[in-house]
Nucleic acid binder design. Structure first.
Lengths: 175, 175
DNA sequence: AGTTTATGTCAGCCTTGTTGACTTTCCAAG
DNA sequence: CTTGGAAAGTCAACAAGGCTGACATAAACT
């Protein structure tokens, strides 16, 4: 393959097979187009409720770690408290999220999905899972491992932390 | 909660190794966190120029296919012409993009980066390539293939078209 | 008692998306 | 040649969701 030496923006020390600028550009565009597909289905559902992606993100991470605090959510989402608060307020007002004052530390608010909130969460995540399941299945298990490996490398280091300690719902040792 | 068997939202016909809801959730969060990392470096550069991601996207695809028309760009970016036009106007006013009236069809405007525009493009894509190169290298060539395979499956079908016919700069067969 | 921390809130600004209405240019079919 | 419609541009208005800054309150820490 590749008559004419493939261009890389580094020296010729790179493994020539996959680090050409052209390959990297393909990766960049893959991220762009795939992320659009990734958010398309939930976006449609959210629109019916008058919500946006910001609401989805909050709902997702509250569901993942019930009882999480506002501050913790803030550090995961990487937005200002004013931004998050606006979203959170509408979710609480609409009865999708419950905000309980902490028992150990009464300054903290612990966030939980209500039944209605959990319903919406299921609807959203199911749509998103359906697309991802199809993509995973069509690409195969080895591709999935590679997908995850590359994405993990692409994260900022401090976000990798949030990503890695998922799994159990111990979102801050709620009492 | 739920120390029962691993849940999948489909039947038990799935290959249990990688299509559990938990695995899918990890994939979803990987996309979220990785996309943030993916855009973080260009965002910093853009801020210095008073531009946003919309400008980056326009610059990227004009660079990829010099001479592309506004309409073509519209279908790639998936926004309204009013939205794109606002961005394009600032780029033209600032001398980063040149808009040439079409010769064959004078209604069309063909878009090109100026020297200054190409400079900014290089700066932006270099930052983004650096991160992707590091991720690709750390993950290894097989992971890269998997990454691309999954992302391609995740795109909407009509976007896959735009993704696949990249490479040559024949953005509409300009004369 | 004084400071720090966690949260909430008000006000205002920016980018980037949206819809709707209208104009100009100009190709192409009748 | 006339006219229908496509491509592009423009103006106006609006919304989501980022941001900053300032300020309030309660609770915890020192």
């Amino acid at each position: 393959m590749a008559e004419r030496a493939p261009q890389t923006s580094m020296g010729r020390s790179e493994t020539l097979l996959f680090l050409t600028d052209e390959q990297l550009r393909r990766g960049i565009e893959a991220m762009f187009f795939a992320y659009r597909g990734f958010t398309a289905d939930p976006d449609k559902i959210l629109q019916e409720y008058g919500y946006g992606r910001a609401h989805h993100r909050a709902i997702h991470f509250i569901n993942r770690a019930p009882g999480t605090t506002v501050n913790n959510l803030l550090s995961i989402l990487g937005v200002t408290k004013q931004s998050l608060n606006r979203v959170l307020r509408t979710l609480v007002d609409d009865g999708l999220v419950e905000s309980r004052v902490g028992t150990r530390d009464k300054r903290e608010r612990h966030l939980y999905l209500t039944e209605a909130g959990a319903d919406l969460e299921r609807q959203l995540s199911e749509a998103q899972r359906n697309r991802m399941r199809a993509a995973f299945r069509n690409a195969g298990p080895e591709a999935v491992a590679g997908f995850r490996a590359v994405l993990e490398e692409m994260m900022d280091a401090d976000m990798r932390r949030h990503y890695l300690d998922g799994g159990d719902g111990s979102g801050g040792g709620a009492p």
